[in-house]
Every structure is written in C-alpha cells, then in structure tokens.
C-alpha cells in the first residue's frame, strides 16, 4: 500500500533521513521505533508532504507522492495524528471534528463518520460543545484521532500517540489503534514506547540516526538482543 525507498531528507546541511526504505501492506500495523532524534517524526512528516525529500520515492497505491504537498497527500487517504495532540484549542469538540471532514473525499461521508467517531469515543459525545482546549490530555488525543478519522483515511500515521499520557490512558489509546486496525485501517505507529508498539505491530523498523538498522516482525524484534539491550533495558 505504502512503499518508501531510498529516502534522503535534509534540514539545511543536517541529514535527518539516510536511505530509508520501508513497506506498509494494506491492513497491517507497522511500528517505527527509535530514540529521540532518530528521525521518526521526520519520516512521518516527509510521507505526509510537510518535508520534501532530497532523494527517494514514496509510493502510495503505486503512485509516487514524494514531494507532493500535504493537502494532496491527505486527499489521497493518508491521515496523520501529529505529535503533541494538535487540536484547535478554542474551537469546540464538535467544530474540531467537522474541521477534519473539510476534504472533498470526506465531505459526503461526514455524518456517518461523525457517528462512528462518537461511538468509538463516547467521552467526546458528552463534550461536543466544550472548547477542545479544556479537555484532558487523553481526551485531546482521542479528539485528534477522531478528527483524523473524519477525513476518511485509509492509512493513518500516529506520531507518539502515548506521549505525556497516564499509563492507563496509553493502554486505551493503543487499544483503540488496535481496534481501528481490526476494522481495516492500515496504521503506521511511531513510538518511543518500544515494548508496547512492538507487541502491537505486524512489522517493525528500528530507526537510528536517520537509518533503518533493523527490521522484522514485532515478535522477532522483541526477541532481538540488540533491541532488548538498547530499548528495553534488558
């Protein structure tokens, strides 16, 4: 479904990604793990069309989207839930959700998607008219995911969805991602929380200093000595 090959990304002279290749098959969860500054967010932002790659290809359903502007990428069906729960703080929960369905591809299905999102996150239904900025961290993350789903994406990239959330909420968010995946949503999950994301993922990649240094199925990486030492402290 999504195939990245030989991707190089620079910020000025600093190289953020070096010859990164990965593949996401339809209906899977692919985890990208790595330390802070390894290039995880750069990778997501480049696929989303926010950063431009210097070299390399990004193919979505056989179509090269490398360097395409972000609104085009969104309209093809690639959604992203950005790091740090970027909701519109002074807009109500309801308005936030509507904002997610402004794309031509999503407008027609707005009402149906809205019901689906509110069934998925019943908490949000109780707070529809409340400003998004007044929600708790976990609720904001739910809203950010819900708003993304309003755009009727086929593939969603989650950037650090567990960042700054209480452990029980983290479990909820990750369970939601798993449920969405079971309903057919293809997911790319970028996490520092390596143990959890590897358990969830069908396939995983380890990113270090902008390079993919390891890849395999989730269980394979969980059993890998290098991963255990570097990321799991074992």
């Amino acid at each position: 479904m999504l195939k990245v090959s030989g991707l190089d990304v620079f910020y000025g002279d600093a190289q953020a990604l070096d010859n990164v290749s990965l593949e996401v098959t339809e209906g899977s969860i692919v985890a990208i793990v790595g330390a802070n500054g390894a290039g995880k967010t750069s990778l997501i932002r480049t696929i989303a069309g926010i950063n431009r790659p210097a070299r390399g290809q990004i193919q979505f359903r056989g179509r090269d989207i490398a360097g395409a502007p972000s609104h085009k990428v969104c309209d093809l069906g690639i959604g992203q839930v950005a790091e740090g729960r970027q909701v519109f703080p002074s807009l109500s929960v309801s308005e936030n959700l509507d904002m997610g369905a402004m794309l031509p591809r999503a407008r027609a299905k707005r009402e149906r998607n809205r019901e689906r999102v509110l069934d998925l996150f019943p908490h949000l239904r109780e707070r529809l008219s409340q400003p998004a900025g007044t929600l708790s961290g976990g609720e904001q993350q739910m809203l950010a995911i819900g708003r993304c789903l309003m755009g009727a994406p086929e593939l969603v990239m989650f950037d650090e969805p567990s960042l700054g959330l209480a452990p029980t909420i983290v479990q909820q968010v990750l369970a939601t991602i798993r449920d969405l995946n079971r309903e057919g949503l293809t997911c790319v999950l970028v996490e520092q929380n390596v143990a959890v994301s590897l358990r969830l993922a069908g396939r995983a990649y380890v990113l270090e200093n902008g390079r993919i240094t390891l890849s395999g199925t989730g269980p394979e990486l969980l059993a890998d000595d290098r991963v255990r030492q570097a990321y799991l402290g074992m």
């Binding site: 990428v73 309209d75 992203q80 519109f88 703080p89 904002m99 993304c148």
Partner: peptide
C-alpha cells in the same frame, strides 16, 4: 480559523495552507 489556531494541525487535516 484552523490556520490561525494551529497551522501545523491545519496542514495535518489536509488544508492547503
């Protein structure tokens, strides 16, 4: 409004900012 509130988020939901 989306751009004013949060330009990054506006871009993430597919607005041609």
């Amino acid at each position: 409004l989306a751009i004013r509130e949060d330009e990054e988020a506006a871009r993430a939901i597919g607005i041609d900012t």
